[in-house]
């Protein structure tokens, strides 16, 4: 039985397979409309989420399956002090597959050890969010047609951004990928990711504080939000916050076919005016999330 806890649980050829299935679903959704008839997805969301939970639920409904679950810890037995292991053991009797979000890091791994049915990590604190990474990869594939030979810029909060860490891990397995890491000094990529992921895979990378300076090099710009609470003092935040807000002016030197991604929700880090730019793909990315989750559910349920 397979689970998806970390994006690196999947080999690159498995990612290729999932992307191929997702692309086929987009082309011919009717072929998949009854693939999961009679199957149930349990969405166990111990903390609130909009896109992830709804896209999992939409994915299962579009496969002809059903959904049960809860959307906050208060409406689950964990509010009474039940352990993750006990909760999922019981859910394992009622459902065929679990998608779990939990504020504590490692909770989905505990679930996968106890559920008896496949478990998908739908986000565990600041740790992993592999289906977001799959969503990012499907979007990159659809926009660029490849995962190799890409210069990928990551901009904003690279220190705490789990989506950035996971995507860097996933892309580090492809040839001739270059990373451009754009962030304030306070929010640079953690040293262990540079050492244990980027340098270990001999990936070329540069670190910079200036987005406009590197804009022209990028094939993909992955934006994240610089949050006020990450700064030790308010003055630094005020000084830096606008540097990492994407505006049409900052895109002047960008490649014509550059692709702007963002895991959403967006607050103010991408100006609304950018939404009309043909390079803005973040809403497309959110749409792709449903299709890749459909492909993932089919794979983990071993539905042909």
């Amino acid at each position: 039985m397979r689970n998806l806890i970390d994006i690196l649980d999947l080999t690159t050829s498995e990612i290729d397979e999932l992307v191929a299935v997702a692309n086929d679903i987009i082309e011919s959704p009717q072929k998949y409309a009854h693939k999961c008839a009679g199957k149930k997805l349990a969405t166990l969301f111990f903390e609130p989420s909009t896109r992830t939970r709804l896209s999992f639920e939409a994915a299962m409904y579009e496969l002809g399956g059903n959904v049960l679950g809860f959307s906050e810890a208060q409406s689950s037995s964990s509010a009474k002090g039940e352990s993750v292991a006990d909760t999922v053991k019981v859910v394992g009797y009622y459902a065929d597959i679990i998608a779990m979000r939990h504020p504590k890091e490692g909770a989905p791994l505990v679930a996968s050890m106890n559920a008896g049915i496949p478990v998908i990590n739908a986000g565990d604190g600041g740790h992993n969010h592999p289906t977001q990474t799959l969503t990012d990869l499907l979007t990159i594939n659809r926009e660029k047609g490849r995962f190799d030979n890409l210069t990928v810029g990551f901009c904003g909060d690279l220190k705490f951004g789990r989506t950035v860490h996971s995507l860097i891990g996933a892309l580090s397995r492809y040839k001739n990928v270059k990373f451009v890491l754009i962030s304030p000094k306070e929010l640079t990529l953690p040293e262990y990711i540079i050492k244990e992921v980027i340098e270990k895979n001999n990936i070329e990378f540069v670190e910079t504080t200036n987005l406009e300076e590197v804009m022209g090099q990028l094939d993909i710009l992955y934006m994240t939000r610089v949050q006020r609470e990450r700064f030790f003092n308010e003055q630094d935040y005020i000084r830096l916050k606008d540097s990492y807000i994407l505006t049409p002016e900052k895109l002047e030197n960008a490649k014509e076919d550059m692709c702007i991604l963002h895991p959403l929700p967006r607050v103010n880090e991408i100006a609304v005016a950018v939404d009309n730019d043909k390079r803005a793909k973040y809403f497309e990315q959110a749409k792709n999330g449903k299709y890749i989750r459909m492909a993932l559910i089919l794979k983990l349920l071993e539905v042909e």
């Binding site: 292991a85 504590k104 890091e105 791994l109 505990v110 740790h127």
Partner: peptide
Amino acid sequence: NPRCITSVEQEL
């Protein structure tokens, strides 16, 4: 790590 699941589930 205070954010780790082991910080709240003592029996793990």
